[in-house]
């Protein structure tokens, strides 16, 4: 419940993502009303029905393509209400090799992982400041913690998003608006389908969903899922550049 007695709401941007689905369900189980924004209406509808049937909470659907930046203001205006929490899980891994020579592909990775998420959360930030409350949650990636040969286009976009969220948090720390950065390591989802992932470092989408809910309930600013990733990335960041550049990572 919010202060005025209405049911608190969560908007998930990326309502078809496996992590987004799990997070929405975790929130719905606490009684939150859910809004799912997505570009693939059919999958979003399945996820919405699933959450509603399991929990009995109302779930609404809202069309949005994060490349369509011109529509962002109208999208926010058209929502049935200004949500209490906005979670952006949109992302695309892309293909690093292709992005090296195909500038269109590289641009798309940058736009989907940085430009779109940052701009849309930026709009909500202004509305939240005006209202005086709200929580913004962005899903980045450990790949943004240090650029590596195997995925630096994606990593750079995630790093940009991470820096944006950090700055926003810094700016809004005295207001009633919270900003949370979530950095998954490996997660077993559609994005990593068919990849061989190390079990100890790999989370299920449900784990990430609960970690997001817990981050909002607790006071965290930046959370790694699984937690071991914080240590792993600290070590990776500490490797001196002259050595790092020669490693195959």
């Amino acid at each position: 419940m919010t202060g005025d007695g209405t049911t608190a709401s969560l908007l998930v941007i990326g309502g078809t993502s496996d992590i987004g689905r799990a997070a929405a369900l975790a929130y719905a189980q606490t009684g939150r009303r859910i809004m799912l924004a997505a570009r693939d209406a059919e999958t979003a509808r399945r996820n919405a029905d699933d959450i509603a049937a399991r929990t009995g909470v109302p779930v609404s659907l809202h069309a949005l393509d994060l490349l369509d930046t011109d529509r962002f203001e109208a999208f926010v205006d058209d929502l049935p209400m200004l949500p209490d929490t906005v979670l952006c899980v949109v992302g695309e891994l892309g293909e690093q090799r292709r992005a090296e020579s195909d500038i269109g592909h590289a641009q798309r990775i940058m736009r989907v992982n940085f430009e779109g998420p940052a701009l849309i959360l930026g709009i909500f930030a202004e509305r939240f400041v005006a209202r005086g409350t709200g929580t913004l949650i962005g899903v980045g990636s450990v790949a943004g913690d240090r650029g590596r040969a195997s995925n630096y286009v994606y990593g750079a976009a995630k790093a940009g998003f991470s820096a944006f969220l950090s700055g926003l948090r810094n700016r809004l720390s005295a207001s009633g608006v919270r900003v949370i950065t979530v950095k998954p390591g490996f997660v077993r989802t559609r994005m990593t389908e068919g990849m061989k992932l190390p079990p100890v470092l790999t989370a299920e989408p449900e784990e990430v969903g609960h970690a997001i809910l817990e981050a909002e309930r607790g006071g965290s600013d930046v959370v790694y899922v699984r937690r071991v990733w914080r240590g792993v990335m600290t070590v990776i960041r500490m490797i001196p550049e002259p050595l790092f550049k020669r490693l195959k990572l």
Binding site: R46, N47, D49, D50, A52, A53, R54, G56
Partner: peptide
């Protein structure tokens, strides 16, 4: 693996 609908009045459940 999605649930589709549930009616608590009748117990009627539709699932994939």
């Amino acid at each position: 693996d999605r649930f589709r609908s549930f009616d608590p009045e009748t117990g009627r459940l539709t699932v994939e």
